[in-house]
Write a protein that binds this DNA or RNA. Structure first.
Length: 260
DNA sequence: ATGGTCGACTCTCGA
C-alpha cells in the first residue's frame, strides 16, 4: 500500500495540529504541502521528526513555500524547474523528489490574480514549463505523481456556478487548456477516476459563509499519476473532515491510495 | 446571494 496526500496549508505553523491528526489517522507515505508561508530557518522540522517523518522544504517570508514529508527515505531532491528560467519564487513553488522509486512533483501553481494581470501570463507559462519538464526529464512509462495546488478547476464539474467563472484565473479557458495540455503528456486524474460525480471540492473560500454546506467550492488540488500507477490505484478521497476541525482555512487534504 | 476572512507582516497584501 502507498498513500499520497496533498494539502495547501495556508501557513504550516498555523496548521500543525491538523497535520498531526492527519498523520496519526492516515499515516501517508508521502505528504505534499503548499503555501507553508515560512522561511527555512523557521520551518517546523522538529515537528516532523517527532512524527518520525523525514521532510524537505523551501519557503520564503509570508508567501508560497512547499514541503514534502514521508516516513520513507526522500531521494533526488530538486527545487524549481532547473530550466534556466527559475526565479527565486519558483524554488518555493516546485519541489521534486523520489520516494520508494516513485517520482514525486509537488507544485503550488501561481494563482494569477486576474486574467489581465501579468501574473496570469506567468501562470500560463508555468504550465508550459511543466509540460517541457515532463517531456525532457521524465518518462511516462515510469511511476510518477504530479500533485499539489494547481489553481485550476479543469472542467465545469470542478467549480460551482461555472458559467459565472469564465473570466476567473482558475477557470478561464486558457488556463484550463494549459493545465490539460500538461495532463495530456501522460497523466490520469486519479481522483476523478474514482469520483465522477459533481460537487467534489477541495477548496472553499472562507469569506463565503457556509460555503461547505452550500457546496460553493472548487476542485483545484489535484493528484495526477502515470498509467502504471493508475492501474494500481485503489481509491481516492477528499478528506473534508479535517477542514471542519480547523479554524476556517480554505483547502483540505486530497488523497490517493495504491496497491504497491 | 457576485458576499467576506484569514495569516503574515506592516500599517497592506495575497488568496
Amino acid at each position: 500500500m502507498f498513500t499520497i496526500a496533498t494539502y495547501n496549508t495556508n501557513s504550516i505553523r498555523a496548521r500543525l495540529h491538523i497535520i498531526k491528526k492527519y498523520i496519526e489517522d492516515i499515516h501517508p507515505d508521502c505528504l505534499c504541502l503548499q503555501e507553508t508561508k515560512v522561511v527555512d530557518e523557521q520551518f517546523p522540522k522538529e515537528f516532523f521528526l517527532e512524527q518520525k517523518y523525514n521532510v524537505i522544504f523551501k519557503g520564503q517570508k509570508a508567501y508560497n513555500g512547499v514541503a514534502i514529508a514521508s516516513p520513507h527515505k526522500i531521494e533526488d531532491v530538486i527545487f524549481g524547474f532547473e530550466d534556466g528560467e527559475d526565479r527565486e519564487e519558483d524554488l518555493t513553488r516546485l519541489i521534486r523528489c523520489k520516494i520508494k522509486g516513485i517520482s514525486i512533483i509537488n507544485s503550488y501553481v501561481p494563482q494569477g490574480r486576474d486574467i489581465e494581470h501579468e501574473q496570469y501570463q506567468i501562470k500560463l507559462n508555468w504550465f508550459k514549463r511543466l509540460k517541457r519538464l515532463f517531456e525532457q526529464k521524465y518518462k511516462k512509462e515510469l511511476p510518477i505523481i504530479w500533485c499539489g495546488d494547481m489553481n485550476v478547476a479543469p472542467t465545469e464539474l470542478d467549480v460551482y456556478e461555472p458559467e459565472k467563472k469564465l473570466d476567473h484565473v482558475c477557470f478561464h479557458e486558457a488556463v484550463r487548456r494549459a493545465f490539460l495540455d500538461v495532463v495530456s503528456w501522460g497523466f490520469i486524474d486519479i481522483f476523478r477516476k474514482f469520483h465522477p460525480e459533481p460537487e467534489q471540492f477541495s477548496f472553499f473560500d472562507y469569506r463565503i459563509r457556509g460555503a461547505v454546506k452550500r457546496k460553493l467550492g472548487w476542485r483545484i488540488d489535484h493528484i495526477l499519476v502515470t498509467k502504471n500507477l493508475a492501474d494500481k490505484a485503489i481509491d481516492a478521497k477528499i478528506d473534508l473532515k479535517y477542514r471542519l476541525l480547523q479554524k476556517p482555512s480554505d483547502h483540505t487534504f486530497v488523497r490517493a491510495l495504491f496497491d504497491l
